[in-house]
Write a protein that binds this DNA or RNA. Structure first.
Lengths: 299, 299
DNA sequence: CGGGATTGTCCAGAGACTGTACAGATCACC
DNA sequence: GGTGATCTGTACAGTCTCTGGACAATCCCG
């Protein structure tokens, strides 16, 4: 199923569909500048319409976002572009023969994690992260594997130890990618799991996806008491606070506090435990898509 | 081995990327002075853009930080530069004269973590891990900081959020160092925190220290149910199982199970919650030193 | 204390880097 | 056919950086 989704996305990407004005509006970068970046640094490789208009893909849009993020960090334009190009796999690289490769690598990741083989797991993650954009890896490999593992556990076909082992390998890797995610001058997001909630990987994924869009992330992690979250929000004055939980019960007691917090900051709840009615009761936003999509929709 | 890894890392990131203005902003050293330090002491060896602009690498940035630290200590500029160059060329050198440097870097780590500054924290960790053996960093910087943070929290001088934030930064870093720690052909250790126990950093530290002595590590992490630990021990047949907890109560219910597990494997308990009487009751070993020392004494 | 060495700062003129602007032509769509 | 968007190519201004040397404050040592 995920492979199918990937294919569809890639088709759309390959088809190219944004003209320069629309890309400019979305990214806030002047058309002249977009052309200059293309000419000078090869940042973008738009397809062309029959009449010669540039047609940009999702990947192009992402590259512009990356470029802007790097500029905010203070890098020179030439260097920012070099990194943006390097860091986001070229669309043809990611599409042509790679959907099977994605599937293969995901398969070996699953196998390695299931059998407590850390070294092989890291190698599989290397292949994934080396060949695909991080959003792709999260959405198509890591997150599906984790939720599948949860289901297998519920069905008695996986152990808690496997889940713990896999979580720690993945957590280390994701936190490694998170390095420096609080730098720059984008809006700041404060992320925390609800009290008693120990599943932080989806929240880290969300942070990474948000980071790619220029946000600054402050991550408090699992089992964060609501009082200290409120205090920290007051101290850091983030543009957004996200509280995540896998089950409803862990969010229910927070409703009143979140509603109060809502008066000073934008607040959202996320995770399988975040329901429509809870969001309504607390008068906060609901992030109900997968972490990568949620980050994309947030902007 | 770790030195080798570090070297490789430095090689990879050797590519220049910061222009002089940005390096100046980041380090707080005027551009003129940066050029003067390069000209007079050879402190920096920036690459050049095609047009002749200096392009500095991470290593250069670190050298400037080192230089500044030495200047703050009162060294003359020439001497400070000499040390900065020498030290950054030999990251594993732990001379007597570097104790102040260890202290300085630990200070900036504390400051950065306390104020939710992830980027600065990582930079401080870079300096620590670049300049000292990992055991030194764990024993003299990271673990003391964490226990101090715990005490400050108990005394009302630190928040849970600070503890959570710091834990996640450090956890990401340590798990990054843990990469591949299950490979090789040494004896295998299976590490887990007791049920409900969420503090896993000391246990990770212990795993890293053990790894340096040739062990293979399988890490299950926080809040591991005892049943799945026993199952996994049966499956992996490790040479040693370690269960860790910060308070006694989390180990007490495990005594009987551990005694049974003892019949098939060597077992130890660790952490502040592991007491003499518990170890005796369960007939298992007691690791009561700090993680690094405990690993050294285990052999 | 005096004199030399050290060290942080400053400058001018030239060139590099980068965002923006414009002219004249073409394209897309009603 | 008209209107708005986009095309190419070039130009330009503002900012940053370069080199090489000068200079004043400070330090060190006899």
């Amino acid at each position: 199923m995920y492979v199918q989704i990937l294919y569809n996305e890639l088709m759309v990407e390959e088809a190219g569909y944004l003209r320069i004005g629309e890309l400019s509006r979305r990214t806030g970068v002047a058309p002249e500048l977009l052309r200059a970046w293309e000419r000078r640094y090869g940042l973008l490789r738009p397809a062309r319409s029959s009449g010669g208009f540039r047609l940009y893909s999702h990947a192009d849009e992402r590259r512009v976002e990356l470029m802007r993020a790097h500029l905010r960090e203070g890098l020179a334009a030439a260097e920012a572009a070099r990194r943006a190009v390097e860091h986001s796999a070229l669309p043809d690289e990611e599409s042509a023969s790679s959907a099977p490769e994605l599937e293969t690598a995901t398969g070996s990741l699953r196998e390695a994690l299931d059998s407590f083989d850390e070294t092989k797991s890291q190698a599989a993650l290397d292949r994934l992260l080396g060949g695909f954009a991080i959003e792709t890896v999260l959405r198509n490999a890591i997150l599906p594997y984790l939720s599948d593992l949860g289901e297998r556990w519920a069905g008695g076909n996986a152990t808690v130890a496997q889940e713990h082992f896999a979580s720690n390998v993945v957590r280390g890797r994701l936190l490694g990618l998170a390095r420096g995610w609080d730098s720059g001058d984008g809006p700041r997001a404060l992320l925390a799991c609800a009290p008693e909630e120990l599943h932080d990987l989806a929240l880290i994924s969300f942070g990474l996806a948000l980071r790619r869009r220029g946000w600054r992330i402050t991550f408090l992690g699992a089992d964060t008491p609501i009082d200290t979250l409120v205090d920290t929000a007051r101290q850091l004055e983030p543009s957004l606070v996200v509280v995540s939980a896998t089950v409803r019960q862990r969010l229910t007691p927070l409703v009143d506090t979140l509603r109060r917090l809502r008066r000073q900051t934008r607040v959202a709840i996320a995770g399988a435990g975040a329901t429509d009615s809870l969001a309504e009761a607390a008068q906060v936003e609901l992030l109900d898509a997968d972490p990568v999509t949620a980050a994309a929709e947030l902007v």
